[in-house]
Design a protein around this nucleic acid. Structure first.
Lengths: 119, 119
DNA sequence: CGGCATCCTTATAGATACTG
DNA sequence: CAGTATCTATAAGGATGCCG
């Protein structure tokens, strides 16, 4: 727990001394972060739903990444005090403002896949 | 060397099974890759020049990242057979097509820095 | 200058088991 | 359901030295 926080601090420091792109990477630089944020663009999602959208990542990794996104203020974690437990994640306004980045990433990936399928 | 290749393979596999955003991340997912690509948007750069634009990364890391970017077809490496050695890096057409992604990342980082400076 | 090879130290991701 | 805790294996990353 302390680790991820210190890592985040380092990333922030890099974001300060570096260029604007580094600042963005200090927030969305994790391997699964852009994917998680992208799927949250369409609305709130439960933890398990998020896991299903990123089958290549383990639940543990998803938890860790979500915690960092939350700490960076791009994701809200909503806990419903019921049994069985229910937790939803949603983008904050800051997170929603990442839409241009995420959508351009999706577009580029789509084109890449098409060109790879053609070859 | 073998390592980075296998890593790339894993990333590609994730890019295949995953969504479009994952496909993009399989290419620009490295911590320093977007920064390097962004600086190359303005034109060819020598190795040392690239190092200066990313002071937070060690030359070793920059080399490794450039090799992967080269293997993924977004960067060209141009070696001039002279003494002292001179090597330049430039974006390929595929690399140039990443401009929307890189520019939106820069824009977001710029806004983030401004809002952080204000608080 | 622009690396690569090597050693060495952390960090990180996976697996597993457990809990409110 | 939505995690947490712990352990372990592996890999990433820094430092250094050498080379064409």
């Amino acid at each position: 727990m302390d680790d991820s926080v210190s890592i985040r601090r380092e990333r922030r420091r890099a974001g300060r001394t570096g260029c604007d792109v580094e600042a963005t990477l200090s927030v969305i630089g994790g391997i699964w972060k852009p994917v998680l944020l992208f799927h949250l663009l369409e609305g709130k999602l439960r933890f398990n739903a998020l896991c299903r959208t990123v089958p290549n990542a383990t639940p543990r990794m998803i938890t860790l990444q979500l915690r960092e996104l939350e700490a960076d203020g791009v994701v809200n974690r909503i806990v419903y005090p019921e049994v069985p437990p229910k937790v939803e994640y949603e983008l904050t306004d800051l997170g929603t403002s990442l839409a241009p980045v995420l959508l351009s990433m999706r577009d580029w990936g789509e084109r890449l896949k098409r060109s790879e399928a053609a070859s």
